Simulated scan of single mutants.
Amino acid sequence: MAHISLWGGAPWQDPARVSEAREVAAEVEELGYHRLWFSGGFGDGVLPAFGELLAGTRTLGVASGIVSIWTATPEQSATAFEELEAAHPGRFVLGLGNSHAPAVEGQGARYEKPFTRTVEYLDALAAQPRAVPADRLVLAALGPRMLELARERTAGAHPYFVTVEHTAFAREALGSGPLLAPEVGVVLETDPDQARATARDHMEMYLQLPNYTNNLRRFGWGDDDLLGGGSDRLVDALIPWGSVEDVAAGVQRHVDAGADEVAVQVLGGGGDFPRQDFRTLAAALIDA
């Protein structure tokens, strides 16, 4: 049976909201979610927020989705993992990714040979005095080569901003053993115009990033689909929306396509923690 997790962004990272984030994480744990994924951001090293949320919960898994290999050194990642593992054994998964050229170059680095850099990063991580075990690592893999690397060197893949067709493709590329945990954005809104507007607010930035658009093109999406925040057809393929039953069915399609775990990202919260939506979705998605 697939696990249902949550994926979150800025509110979980904010140092000014640590107390609130810990309170919400404790409720997420009580609701039965398997794991909490959230972005490692683009600052130096590994965010303290991962440790804060582990400390505020008892059994909830926490994972980085992702720590950028351009902003956290292998030494920093290994040290952070060692400290989190010592304090909270078995609960933290280190998700790594090669990010995107605009983000990396915006910080003054050159975005060159991301696949080669990922291989070199994994080699350096494995050479640390306290290496991160491969079964506690995942990669933000989209294309065939990165999925193969995830299969060979880590526990599996955490694809972001993908359709059900990609989930099926990734399952085939990974084989039956490795973890496949796609992020899936959802909108609990039954009005089509409002739901799609919320989805497009989320999608617009990602449709400007070549890693994502190239991946969508791999599955037949064209220029008309990628402009203006996405065609209706693309919105509907990427972002399950509607009633809770509609959203649950959209998540289930990823499970049916081979996902072991789905990291559900609730959209439209306006930068806040959408706690009621977490509760509503838990009742529909998580077996009692």
Rank of each mutant, 00 (worst) to 15 (best):
T57G: 06
G65N: 10
T71N: 15
V46S: 08
G51T: 08
P74I: 09
T79V: 11
D44W: 13
L47C: 08
E82Y: 07
A63C: 11
T73S: 11
T79A: 15
A86W: 07
H88F: 09
G40A: 13
A80N: 06
A87Q: 11
A86Y: 07
P74R: 09
G56D: 10
L53P: 00
E52C: 10
G41Q: 04
T79K: 11
G65I: 06
P89S: 11
E82I: 03
G61S: 09
L54W: 02
A78Y: 00
L84S: 01
T71K: 14
Q76M: 06
A63V: 07
A78G: 04
L53C: 07
E52Y: 12
T71I: 13
V93Q: 11
I69S: 06
G95P: 00
E75F: 05
E82K: 10
S68N: 10
I66K: 06
R91K: 04
V62S: 12
S64R: 11
A72P: 00
I66T: 12
P74V: 10
S68F: 08
G51F: 03
T57M: 05
T79P: 04
G95Q: 08
G41A: 04
G95R: 07
G90Y: 14
A49Q: 05
L60F: 04
F50D: 00
S77D: 09
A72T: 04
S68I: 09
E75V: 08
F42T: 14
F81E: 05
D44I: 14
E75A: 13
P48V: 12
P74Y: 07
L84Y: 02
T79D: 12
G56M: 10
P48E: 13
